[in-house]
Nucleic acid binder design. Structure first.
Length: 311
RNA sequence: CGCGGGGUAGAGCAGUCGGUAGCUCGUCGGGCUCAUAACCCGGAGGUCGGAGGUUCAAGUCCUCCCCCCGCAA
């Protein structure tokens, strides 16, 4: 029976794992990131681990797979036909890449060679792309540089990271189960990546969420969509942190310093940027739940001229 | 036992030194305007997260529990 070891961590990966399970593959082991303490020290299991537990699949959670000789030896012993990797979050050493006879197959959230790297979906949103997609490829030592086997394009116009991740996760999972048989029977076509067309999506930092109203409104609006899950776009009002979750960039002349409130509406307020204005519809004040701008203004008087700043 | 903020009307908030619980929005009824995120008048709606305790008297002070949020990881 066709044996697959799966490696992945977030929801995006869980979607592919589910597809493999539903397709009936033999999955003796799932490798995912170690359990981490989440908010207020509560243990949070990765979506992939949750799914694996649900189906009674054994899990391994190495701190550093590349240095876990025991696990690597175990993988070798299992002799899987294929290792499928999706947003695993760790680099696979050559010693692992060489184990499966059909190679390590990666589900990557971009149309390679564009947006190689850790956060391709966020990068696609930041760039304002109308279209992105998923590439199934055969992994090699370089970062997302392996030969491409199949691709699917998706419309991501105006979507936030939650939506893009969901769209690409499902498209990728579908593509994965369609592609594996071709890899297995040798009919798959391996296409080299054109390095001259490549780009990289760098890792996201907490500081990337600090909102700078000196940036154009359209850019800030993209960041709000891209960073919604983490770290979120935040600013400070009277020393209190406010995170923005839904906004619209207006192509209007600012009528005040960047960061100042231009106008307040019934269910929104508008902030002046260096270029254009940003209309906020949903936000969260520190210590409070996420709420609509209208709800926020019911309890906090916000008026024209009030200023959001970076502290 | 990581640090901190919070739970009060359908929603968002205020509530001082303990003394019959208030504001904005919504909602319901009535009125007014060419008009507005309108305006005016009136009404309904709360065992103040839960359980004890102190007190003549607890939203408020003390103890324990539940839930939510931010930071740090």
């Amino acid at each position: 029976m066709f044996k697959i070891v799966f490696m992945g961590t977030p929801e995006f990966a869980a979607c592919s794992l589910k597809a493999l399970i539903d397709a009936g593959y033999d999955i003796p082991l799932v490798v995912t990131q170690p359990d981490r303490r989440g908010n207020r020290n509560k243990m949070i299991l990765s979506p992939v681990k949750q799914l694996a537990c649900e189906y009674g699949i054994e899990t391994a959670q190495p701190v550093r797979l590349r240095k876990d000789e025991e696990l690597i030896a175990r993988l070798r012993e299992m002799a899987p036909d294929m290792i499928v990797v999706a947003a695993f979050g760790q680099i696979l050493p050559l010693s692992v890449l060489e184990i499966p006879r059909l190679g390590c197959i990666n589900v990557h959230g971009s149309l390679l060679p564009d947006l190689r790297g850790a956060a391709p979906m966020q990068a696609a949103i930041l760039r304002g792309l109308d279209e992105s997609g998923v590439t199934i490829m055969r992994m090699e030592e370089g970062l997302d540089t392996g030969d491409m086997i199949s691709k699917v394009a998706c419309d991501i116009r105006g979507r936030d990271i939650t939506e893009v991740s969901d769209i690409l996760a499902h498209a990728g999972a579908k593509l994965l189960v369609e592609t594996i048989p071709h890899i297995a029977d040798g009919t798959a076509v391996y296409e080299k990546q054109d390095d001259s067309l490549s780009s990289y999506a760098t890792m996201i930092n907490k500081a990337d969420g600090m909102t700078d109203f000196a940036e154009p409104a359209v850019m800030i609006e993209r960041k709000i969509r891209a960073y919604k899950e983490w770290p979120a776009c935040y600013s400070y009002l009277d020393g209190l942190q406010v995170k923005f979750y839904r906004a619209e960039a207006l192509d209007e002349e600012p009528d005040g310093e960047p960061g100042t409130v231009s106008e307040t509406g019934k269910d929104f307020y508008t902030i002046n940027c260096a270029e254009g204005k940003l209309r906020i519809y949903e936000q969260q004040l520190q210590g409070k739940k996420r709420m609509s701008a209208g709800d926020f203004m019911r309890g906090h008087k916000l008026s024209t001229g009030d200023r959001f700043c970076s502290i």
